[in-house]
Amino acid sequence: MEIIKTAGLTKNFKRFKKQAGMIGSIKGLIRREYEEKQAIGNLDLTIQEGEFVGLIGPNGAGKTTLVKMLTGIIAPTCGSVSVLGYYPNDLEHEFKQQYAVVMGQKSQLFFELTVEDTLRLFKEIYGLPEEEYESSRDYFVKLFQVQDLMHVQVRTLSLGERMKMELIAALLHNPKIIFLDEPTIGLDAVASKQIRGFLAEINERRGTTIILTSHYMEDIKALCKRSIVINHGCKIYDGDTEKLFERFQKFKKITFTFSEPTLLPNLEFDARILEQTPYKKVIMVPKENAAGLLRELMNLLPTDITVEEEEIGTIVERIYQEGGDGLA
């Protein structure tokens, strides 16, 4: 079932343009110049119920603008948008009752109070019966393992703990869709991994549709079967995440370890040596040549071989640079 559908969705922003310096400021006071910037252009999108979709794009690509239009926070300039059958910017309570949005850098919690206080407020705002509230709260408190943190002031929580609480507050009313904008921003590897685990469970067990925006490709790769790449406000890729990374994964990094000092022969296969010691050789090779290189170097009788994919950051850089060419 289609849960989100947009057609020709466009958002233009008007912004004040001012010359630098005092003279520029005075000129701006007398005569204002504005420029129009397209944040999202002619975007067609369909998302099915229960999907876990990643929104990828560099800063200023239009990801957050898209999320803001899908949640009704801002109105589109033109085009159509339907989320759960509603036009989001009508801001109907029945619509807002069915989704949640978590922005990593913004908080819905009251910093002076405890999480339990905020959750009680959300219980009333979403009109949850006491039993449903308690069972939902207990489920998430157990899942996120935050039993000891429910009665301490929010401002005393660490960033990772606070993000778990933000997620509990957002998920309490069992929304059909959850929009997550950089939920792991600033978190360490352990906390990020935990959050990823929780999100995967919520998507699988509760069937919640999740739209995830993140600069951390580990998040996208680990969670989202489908990815949408946006750049300069346009969709440049919409499809399988594995295929996306596979396509832009151009090299393999192969590490050979030897028991005795070993010299490498002249390498073919467009291979490039990254690191070399008498006992260890690290070589980068185009992925289609990896098998050939391996066959050749097996003759040197290595004691250990490791084949690694390229660093995710390098792949992402490539996606943004080359992504527009015939992918969409």
Partner: peptide, 21 residues
């Protein structure tokens, strides 16, 4: 039911004031 959410908001802000002795 509709008024209860506003009553809870009211209570939350009383609690917020009480946090700063």
């Amino acid at each position: 039911m509709g008024l209860r959410k506003y009553l809870e908001i009211l209570k939350i802000f009383i609690k917020t004031q009480l946090a700063w002795r």
